[in-house]
Amino acid sequence: MTERLAEALLWGLVASAAMITVLQASVGLGWSRLNLPMLIGTLFTGNRHRAIVLGMVVYLIGGWLFALLYFFAFAQLGHGSWWLGGLLGLLHGLFLVVVALPLLPHIHPRMASDVDGPTYYRRLEPPGPFGTHYGHNTPLTALLANVVYGVVLGAVWPFVE
């Protein structure tokens, strides 16, 4: 059991690393300005440098937890493969882009809203519809990153099972 959990955590880390690589590469290539570690880190601190480090740590922990959820889903379905993982990732990504990102201005303590504008504490640019304020390609790159995450987890499911 411990060994399976360790494997799940290991592959969860690999999948998270793959996902963040896609996201950061899309930032570096100018396709999007969605800086996920900073977005997460600024939930906890206003210091930009600390936020990025803290955000990365929280992101990786979140990646592990979601990996366990994916593996749980594979176990419940009695099947796991790269395409099923990719499909789950796509659904996961759609949820993030369509539901979670628009919710952020309401729950993020440092994010301005499109309605009220910035305040002393709320300074971060809101994502806008489907995250498009961070660049028109943001929905696509976010979906791609989640699909990659799911594909990795689905592909390794036979080893973790």
């Binding site: 930032v27 300005r33 800086n35 504008g117 002393y120 300074r123 971060l124």
Partner: peptide, 15 residues
């Protein structure tokens, strides 16, 4: 300016 990053809107006025 935000370069490869999200915009930050610093407050105006006395701030």
């Amino acid at each position: 300016m935000a370069h490869q990053d999200m915009l930050v809107a610093p407050p105006l006025g006395e701030h």
